[in-house]
């Protein structure tokens, strides 16, 4: 062949990306259908929230009903005064339920969005490579941004919905089983609501942002979970250590902390989007 110069092309101005809803929906429906059928994903997704948000609060509330009230004075003495004093002022039967279900379970609650988003994101991104389905997807007329957004939503939406649903269960069970002792609704508090509606999605975005980055380097879901776990576990421990404190702070501070987590999460996600490039992905297949 003698042709060495490309034929002239009609130049088109670069088009601004607008999300293609039908494409995004189709990918989400596909992935969610597949996830629902995967025991390896569904079991941990249900088991961890089940234990943390249903089993534990129910157990604590039942324990408070059936046993003589334990002496919490030693424990309360080690808590910040701003938390300990209101609890100490309660009738002795109510102290344990309020302390555990109202405050101490809060950090564990944040484990749910972090963990679930990580599991789903690993399946959405690294799982596609592991199942060797990514190349056929790349050969379809799906824009990189639509694919990326669909994968994000596949992990983010179920995570937030599951966390919220878990919290509804937590609140209903805590109040129902605690009713004979408390005789009133004691969760959610205002700060709990901020934690649920503002901090939880932020934590989900953080878990997602981390796993998007990690999955780009991993070739299997297991590898992504291992790499992601190395980053996420310290975060979980930090969350456990710090979130009780969140409930002691005022509304503005908790909103601010949520904003910081959102910022980091979105920064990681945006970075992932910039790196989510067909050529880069196909080069690693």
């Amino acid at each position: 062949m003698t042709v060495t110069d490309p034929p002239p092309m009609v130049s088109h101005p670069p088009q601004r990306w607008r999300p293609d809803r039908s494409v995004i929906t189709a990918i989400m429906v596909k992935d969610i259908t597949a996830i629902r059928r995967s025991k390896a994903i569904v079991l941990p997704m249900l088991l961890v929230p089940g234990v943390l948000l249903i089993g534990l609060p129910a157990g604590i509330a039942l324990f408070a009903q059936t046993r003589a009230s334990p002496d919490l004075s030693g424990l309360l003495a080690n808590l910040p005064a701003s938390l300990a004093h209101p609890i100490a002022a309660l009738p002795s039967a109510e102290r344990m339920i309020v302390l555990v279900n109202g405050y101490l379970l809060a950090p564990l609650f944040l484990v749910v969005p972090l963990m679930v988003s990580a599991v789903l994101a690993a399946d959405a991104f690294a799982g596609e490579k592991e199942r060797r389905t990514l190349e056929s997807l790349l050969h379809l007329p799906v824009r990189d941004q639509d694919l990326y957004l669909a994968k994000l939503l596949v992990a983010f939406v179920p995570t937030v919905l599951l966390s919220w649903l878990g919290f509804v269960f937590f609140a209903v069970i805590s109040n129902a089983i605690g009713w004979p002792v408390m005789h009133r609704l004691f969760v959610p508090t205002t700060l709990w609501m901020i934690l649920i509606l503002w901090v939880t999605p932020a934590v989900a975005s953080l878990g997602l942002g981390i796993m998007v980055r990690v999955s780009a380097r991993a070739s299997t879901t297991q590898e992504a979970n291992q790499l992601g776990g190395a980053v996420i576990m310290p975060l979980i421990l930090a969350a456990v250590g710090q979130a009780t404190g969140l409930l002691l702070l005022n509304v503005t501070t908790v909103l601010g902390i949520g904003l910081i987590i959102w910022t980091i999460g979105l920064w990681l996600i945006r970075g992932g989007m910039l790196r989510f490039d067909r050529d880069r992905i196909a080069s690693r297949l």
């Binding site: 596909k30 059928r37 060797r132 389905t133 190349e135 056929s136």
Partner: peptide
């Protein structure tokens, strides 16, 4: 890609 069809070396079907 709207006008092409590709059969990749691996079938690339989602087993689930």
């Amino acid at each position: 890609r709207h006008r092409t069809g590709v059969l990749t070396e691996n079938a690339g079907l989602d087993d689930r």
